[in-house]
Design a protein around this nucleic acid. Structure first.
Length: 877
RNA sequence: GCCCCGGUGGCGGAACUGGUAGACGCAACGGACUUAAAAUCCGUCGGUCGCAAGGCCAUGCCGGUUCGAUUCCGGCCCGGGGCACCA
């Protein structure tokens, strides 16, 4: 064995062993309930791995290796979310087809992953841009079409002017494109939708079936689905409205506050509402206002802060109970896309309506009073709307009711009149999946002049995307490729045009985890999907809390309803890993200009206590400004390249640092010193094994197998106890708590104990050997390469990854003598030694005997004495 | 505005079910080795009083429950994230 730890050679050898023996190829050979499907969110092949990827995959790898050693059948696959816009942008810049760029990136990133020693089953690799994968997107789309879940509709969409495409609501953040940050415009375009709203109720209810998901992810999904229970109420047209709309009818609204129905003093409708459109056609001033509203609403970011504006339509409707006429206003704060695109204006009890009424000098009526007496009777002018629940007043026959009772009574009465009913309203909208982009999965539809929309027959799947095209920024190149879009109508045989829109890439990622179970199946999925599903552990970024995770849940449920899979939910356990942050340093050579310096080139200055006082650039010893921590990025020049890191320290050090420095869900603060520390530890471990293996043999010639635990001295028993306790803790920390940082810390403590231990005597040597074996095994999920080598050095023929994870020896954990803490009146006063099986009396007597304890008891009578077995005694005087 | 998460040494963090607050690591300081530096090894390391034994204070702030609270409850302050004219 070499004395020096040299990561490169060790890692190459371990990786070669795993490869040659196909150690991580998953097999469906475990008994029921003894499989472990571990999945990290597959990456977009952007070119190179970043540290966020490395952290993500290392977490998954630790769990995979641990569960494999528990004797489970494990599946940890990897693939590529390979369609998407960056490939098109790169194509425009370099003139390279997206397919070529993407496949080259995949090759490079796969090499990086291999150098990290990740236990992926590469025989199941998937790239979503392969026709063998996306044909099933298309096949599934056709099934959804048959079921009425997929449909085509012209609607107002979010248009990203930079990427020249439509975005789903989920992809619009603060009125800007999630990728480009460009302000989103509204456009009317025909596109395909998936009716995720049909599953809204189940998507919400089944969050309860996911106890092992982070609470905040579930809350975010619940808010996004946005269930609201209320009433739909019809306000019949007054004669003027009837005349304009050309028929009898009613203005429908949705409200959660039917109890305030008698407080209605106006109606507010969206600019796009049919009544507004009709009224605008006859009233130029109103039309101008409507146009203004629609222009304004192109920028959703401003909507929230916009001032409440409105204009009379000059029309009115009738109150469903009083029959009184109520004016209809067009208002800029009413959204066409939610509810009925119209609201009843109750300024007394809704803040927005209040603000609107004040501005437009509309009357305010109080119809709810507080149960506690406040807001008993409010005289105008009110300072505020009273929007809490209370008791109804000024509401005719419905007076004096509490919220729920009032809503029930009013809903019943409305139903009798045929003017309303209880109803649930959802915030969730259907998922628009059409994208006017080239590098995506073609939507399998054909447009025929005679037959209209015709699905591509199953036998013609896949509709293959031509791979050689290079987008030039002027829209979708498929529109300029007759060989793609020219086709015959499958129904009538006439010349027809193929749909050139492609699918949202979130479609690709909505079911890839199912395909990993059976990547070579000649159907979309086969029985193996039911074997592996659900994913036992899913790991990825919190940024997918809504989008990807909601779509995947939806898609799984649709597949279940089509009889393709059995599970209701795809991901049993979800871990959202934190971001990787690094220091940011800059200088400002000119006002407004900042030059950023890589932290590797900067030295931090500290005072005697170790507090940072400043930083200098190593190159010129001149100060640089510290700008806090931020995610690693090119623009801030604070990135660390995984390949460079592995080259310097090895993959094990990189993995160790990430697992040890912070809990997986929290942000990780990168530090060069911390990386050094991890490297130092691995070197110490290596040295400890080296010293053990190379120590001169003891005079006595017993072998390990003959060692008799009863002959150990106190020191040896103590180390044995620490070692087995460490094994117990690490097993629990990785297996149950997913607390990798404390698992690593526990092994560090063990190694510290071995360092102080006298391993010269025979039994000392035997115990130290066992302690090192435990340390090596416990760390093997985290630093698999070096432990692979050290395991052999410790005398084992079997490769460590093929070992069964050890169980702690109960005999080693037994202590005959323990130390307990003694408190007097709840304050720590002493520690005393007692036999491990001490009774309450024995422990308390021992505690009282301590000099310091006596000092604080001062001979006062003992009121009470509490004994927590094995831990402490508290004497209350 | 609503919802969620968090606040512990110079720093990252530990304390899992209410039971020794600060494990482990980083930084810093002192020492050994060395011609020297690096590496390595040993020691110190929340504040404060004390020669020491030991005491007092301390987990954002205020209060409560308890023999005992970083942990549970109520109220506040601060930081981060999500949602946001959703009727």
């Amino acid at each position: 064995m070499q004395e020096r730890y040299e990561p490169a050679a060790v890692e190459r050898a371990a990786q070669a062993f795993w490869d040659q023996n196909r150690v991580f190829e998953a097999r469906e050979d475990a008994s029921e309930g003894n499989k472990f499907y571990c999945l990290s969110m597959f990456p977009y092949p952007s070119g190179r791995l970043h540290m966020g990827h490395v952290r993500n995959y290392t977490i998954g790898d630790v769990l995979t290796r641990f569960h494999k050693m528990q004797g489970k059948a494990v599946l940890q696959p990897m693939g590529w979310d390979a369609f998407g816009l960056p490939a098109e942008n790169a194509a425009m810049k370099n003139g390279v087809p997206p397919a070529k760029w993407t496949r080259e990136n995949i090759a490079y990133m796969k090499g990086q992953m291999k150098s990290l020693g990740l236990a992926f089953d590469w025989s199941r690799e998937i790239a979503t841009c392969d026709p063998s994968y996306y044909r099933w997107n298309q096949w599934m789309f056709l099934r959804m079409l048959e079921k009425g879940i997929a449909y085509r509709r012209t609607g107002v969409v979010n248009w990203d002017p930079v990427d020249q495409t439509v975005l789903a609501n989920e992809q619009v953040i603060d009125g800007r494109g999630w990728r480009t940050g460009a302000l989103i415009e509204k456009r009317e375009i025909p596109m395909y939708y998936l009716a995720i709203t049909k599953y809204a109720e189940e998507l919400l209810a089944d969050l309860d079936k996911l106890p092992e998901w982070p609470e905040r992810v579930k809350t975010m999904q619940a808010n996004w689905i946005g269930k609201s229970e209320g009433c739909e109420i019809s306000f019949p047209y007054a004669p003027d409205t009837r005349a304009l709309m050309g028929a009898d009818g009613a203005l429908k609204v949705f409200t959660t506050r039917a109890d305030t129905l008698f407080g209605v003093t106006f109606m507010a409708i969206a600019a796009e509402h049919p009544i507004a459109v009709a009224a605008g056609a006859k009233n130029p001033a109103l039309q101008a206002f409507i146009d203004e509203c629609r222009r304004g609403s192109t920028m959703e970011a401003d909507i929230a802060t916009q001032e409440k504006k409105g204009m009379r339509t000059g029309l009115s409707v009738l109150h469903p109970f009083t029959g009184q006429s109520v004016e209809v206003w067009v208002a800029n704060y009413v959204l066409m896309a939610y509810g009925e695109g119209a609201v009843m204006g109750v300024p007394g009890h809704d803040e927005r309506d209040y603000e609107f009424a004040l501005k437009n000098k509309l009357s305010i009526v109080q119809v709810v009073k507080s149960k506690t007496g406040a807001y008993e009777n409010l005289d105008p002018p009110w300072r505020d709307a009273f929007s809490e629940y209370g008791l109804t007043m000024n509401s005719g026959e419905f007076d004096g009711l509490e919220y729920r009772a009032a809503v029930d009574a009013i809903a019943r009465a409305l139903e009798k009149k045929g003017l309303g009913r209880k109803r649930t309203q959802w915030r969730l909208r259907d998922w628009g999946i059409s994208r006017q982009r080239y590098w995506g999965c073609p939507v399998p539809m054909i447009h025929c002049g005679k037959c209209g929309e015709v699905p591509v027959p199953d036998k013609d799947l896949p509709v293959v995307l031509p791979e050689g095209l290079v987008p030039d920024g002027s829209g979708n190149p498929l529109n300029k490729t007759p060989s793609f879009y020219e086709c015959k109508c499958p129904k009538c045989g006439a010349d027809a045009r193929r749909e050139t829109d492609t699918m949202d890439t979130f479609v690709d990622s909505s079911w890839y985890f199912l395909r990993f179970a059976c990547p070579d199946a000649d159907t979309m999925v086969d029985e193996r999907a039911n074997y592996w599903m659900p994913v036992d552990q899913y790991i990825g970024g919190i940024e997918h809390a809504i989008l990807h995770l909601l779509y995947s849940r939806f898609w799984t449920k649709v597949m279940r309803d089509l009889g393709l899979v059995k599970n209701d939910e795809p991901f049993k356990n979800l871990l959202t890993q934190g971001m990787v942050l690094h220091d940011i340093y800059y200088r400002e050579p000119a006002p407004g200009r900042r030059d950023f310096y890589n932290p590797a080139d900067v030295e931090v200055l500290r005072d005697e206590k170790g507090q940072r006082t400043g930083a200098i650039l190593l190159k010129d010893n001149q100060p640089v400004t510290w700008d806090g921590l931020g995610t690693m990025s090119k623009s801030k020049n604070n990135g660390v390249d995984p390949t460079d890191l592995i080259g310097t320290f090895g993959a094990d050090t990189a993995r160790m640092f990430m697992m040890f420095t912070a809990p997986p869900e929290q942000t990780l603060e990168w530090s060069e010193e911390g990386v050094q520390g991890s490297f130092r530890f691995i070197r110490r471990l290596w040295k400890a094994v080296y010293d053990q293996v190379n120590a001169p043999p003891p005079a006595d010639s017993l072998t390990i197998n003959e060692f008799d635990k009863r002959q150990l001295n106190a020191e040896q028993k103590a180390l044995r106890r620490i070692a087995h306790h460490t094994l117990e803790k690490v097993t629990d920390d990785i297996g149950r708590r997913r607390s990798f940082n404390t698992a690593v810390a526990a092994v560090m403590e063990l190694l510290n104990a071995v360092g102080k231990f006298d391993s010269k005597p025979l039994y000392g040597r035997v115990v130290a050997h066992e302690a090192l074996e435990i340390a090596v095994m416990c760390l093997s999920p985290v630093i698999p390469h070096v432990t692979h080598e050290l395991w052999h050095q410790l005398g084992h023929e079997t490769a460590l990854i093929h070992e069964q994870w050890w169980k702690p020896d109960p005999e080693a954990l037994v202590q005959d003598h323990i130390e307990i803490s003694v408190q007097v009146n709840g304050k720590m006063r002493a520690r005393v030694g007692v036999p491990a099986d001490a009774t309450q009396e024995v422990a308390i007597t021992a505690a009282k005997a301590d000099a310091n304890v006596q000092k604080f008891m001062e001979g006062k009578p003992v009121k009470k004495a509490i004994y927590v077995p094995g831990k402490l005694v508290n004497i209350v005087v």
